[in-house]
Design a protein around this nucleic acid. Sequence first.
DNA 1: GTACGAATAT
DNA 2: GATATTCGTA
Length: 398
Amino acid sequence: MGSVPAELSLDLRPTFVPKTITDFLSTLPSSQNNKLSLLNDFIARLEHEFRKIDAFKRELPLSMLLLNDAISVLKEESEKCMSYKSQPVLEVFIPLKKECDEEYEVNNNKDKECKDKKNWMSSVQLWNTTTTSTNNVYDKKQHHHRLVIKKIEDERKSVAENHFQQSSSRNGGRGFLPFSACTSIPVTTVALPQTKEEMKESDVNRLSLLTPPLAVKNLRKGCSSSVSRTNSNRELSSSPPTALPSLRTGSLQQQQASRKQRRCWSPELHRRFVNALQKLGGSQVATPKQIRELMQVDGLTNDEVKSHLQKYRLHTRRAPSTKTDESVVVLGGLWMSQDQCNGSSKGSSSGSGSPQSPLHLATRSRGGTDSMEDEEDAKSESYSWKSHIDNKTGKVGV
DNA sequence: GTACGAATAT
DNA sequence: GATATTCGTA
């Protein structure tokens, strides 16, 4: 009955907490035995705490660091102490032991072996020192501590490695191909030319989509941005595709390398595209070549335009139909909204560059044939084809 | 040979 | 879903 609960007798016993490790070290008794025991005890406490906050290492990285540091220092001290203690006999062997330790830090598999050696150490201490059984206890404790320390060190190492890997993967991973990848979107969108013609003539016109080095091909999976091939690149891209099937089956890399860099249709580019379409009388009449010429974009190929046109037609065809049959009519093969039929002209792509502004009414009068395609240009990065139409049918009717 | 549109691949 | 490539045709 008189026994005290375990937690009180051990864990909760008053523990001395120095302000600093240095303080702690300075308070150590001169007696090697006592010193060692105190050291080990303190180390144990530190380790205990270390394990506790290990769960929060992300939140408490600094605490981890401090603890880690403290443990290292005390460990060092403890080892010094031990060596000192057994100096007469062990002096010669200490280096060996250290080597052993180091080795094991590198190679965890040998922990057992190391443990054995440590046991051997303890036995040495046993006969070397005149201490009593308490020493024995401490020795065992020491071994245990050492093992724990090793374990913790390993953990810390792995933690550090993890952190490193995480951070590096964060940077290197696809997740972060940030802005730079798509930065080439022309800022000119803001230019706000007065009229379409003006815009056309202006320098804004020349979207120069210069090609990056071939090395960039590796990145092609991502948004290659508006980077495109230059003339030279075009040549490059045109020839490889002719590779024989046997070659093409070669490696995936080869295939990818032979594949064109993905054209990123930036809003600005799309706007130009739509502009050209309007001038040519609509997506149904305009041909890729004409469009490309009108667009005046360096490096833009017919194929790209063709492909984009295909998609454009798909969308413009599909979107209105789903919406309302009445709001769309077919004129000369062109899908148009009734509004447009009525002659309203929305200068959507007036180049205002501000897709959201309903003001396009004012701008341009495209001869009567404003095909629906004039639909707004690129709304934002993802010009939504459908929204264009909605916009048009919905708001132009003023 | 070129341009196109549709289909298909990536 | 977006873009590239291929294929049949005019």
